[in-house]
């Protein structure tokens, strides 16, 4: 429906159809109720207009009626609430195995980096039919990642990650807007989302020259920054073993338990002493200001790639070997 209607946004993701369905339902429902109310008003206004020989009839009210028009709209509202919440729930729950795109927003541009290592500015290439998860952070004010054709939007905050995901269904080029007012060129903070057929996408990926996968960059950083001196996979380091950490609950010194998600990792690197896993000493130095947002992304991507069963899966073995060597510079 509405595919060729000029005043309707393109529909290019799996959630777009769902949002449209609820929207159209609301249009019909509210349109009908509105029409009914307006019709009543017009009919009453004409029928009971003030004229000689006609008197107003004095009516106090009616509890039955009041009850009706409290309960019936209330029930309708509840249905809308549930429907809306259902869609939101799906929009907020990224499916397993989505491809991550790390995003750094700043006044006034969008910087993307794929897991495979490609970097893009104000343009994002994604294949049709793959779940894509945006992991986003801002370097300054709040921005908002908005793709009308996908019906998704998510604010991008400084100092933490927020996420959004989509599953593109139709090749094409779509608008990317910054939807949160962020200063002078807010309206210029726009870009294109290029949705491609998988084959084309593969071609695009390999066309950009050889780039290091993000996790591998992270692994390199991990040894360059000296992380690997304390965090060793052989359990001998002064810091906790990071293999298999991602996604697991961590018991902290102060008794809280936190899930080791991207935000947790990010916080641990920036403010290590705020969250101390049980049994460790607060000796890790802070890396705030020493690593850029892009480098943080790489580190996080690397730590995420350290799966329990095959710890060296993501990176090439040569890089993995490098992490065993003493770091070139001592950080603290």
């Amino acid at each position: 429906m509405f595919e060729h209607f000029p005043f309707w946004p393109a529909r290019a993701s799996t959630s777009a159809g769902q949002v449209d369905a609820l929207f159209i339902f609301l249009l019909l429902l509210c349109g009908l109720v509105c029409l009914a109310i307006f019709a009543l008003i017009i009919v009453f206004a004409l029928r009971y207009r003030r004229r000689a020989g006609h008197q107003a009839e004095h009516i106090e009210g009616s509890n039955a009626l009041e009850l009706t028009w409290t309960v019936v709209p209330g029930c309708i509202f509840l249905c809308i609430f549930v429907w809306g919440a259902y869609i939101y729930f799906q929009e907020r729950t990224p499916p397993e195995g989505a491809a991550d795109v790390y995003t750094v927003a700043k006044q006034w541009m969008w910087k993307f980096q794929h897991e495979e290592g490609q970097r893009e500015i104000n343009e994002l290439h994604v294949p049709v039919g793959r779940d894509v998860r945006m992991i986003m952070t801002s370097q300054d004010a709040i921005h908002s990642f908005f793709v009308p054709a996908f019906r998704i939007k998510q604010d991008v905050l400084p100092g933490r990650y927020t996420t959004a995901w989509f599953h593109a269904t139709k090749p094409g080029t779509y608008h990317l807007f910054c939807a949160e007012y962020c200063g002078t060129m807010h309206s210029g903070m726009i870009g294109d989302i290029v949705v491609m057929e998988p084959a084309q996408y593969q071609a695009w990926l390999s066309g950009g020259g050889s780039t290091l996968p993000l996790a591998a960059t992270g692994e390199k950083l991990f040894s360059e920054l000296g992380c690997s001196t304390c965090h060793r996979s052989d359990m001998q380091g002064r810091g906790p073993n990071l293999v298999g950490l991602f996604g697991k609950p961590v018991l902290l010194e102060d008794g809280r338990t936190m899930i080791a998600d991207e935000n947790y990792l990010r916080e641990c690197i920036q403010n290590p002493t705020l969250r101390i896993p049980k049994g460790y000493k607060p000796i890790m130095p802070t890396f705030q200001g020493l690593v850029s947002d892009e480098q943080l992304n790489a580190l996080v991507a690397y730590i995420k790639s350290l799966k329990q069963s095959q710890p060296k899966q993501a990176a090439g073995s040569s890089v993995a070997a490098a992490s065993q060597q003493p770091p070139a510079t001592q950080v603290h």
Partner: peptide, 8 residues
């Protein structure tokens, strides 16, 4: 107020 629609 419908969450799914508001996101858009």
């Amino acid at each position: 107020a419908a969450l799914g629609v508001d996101v858009h």
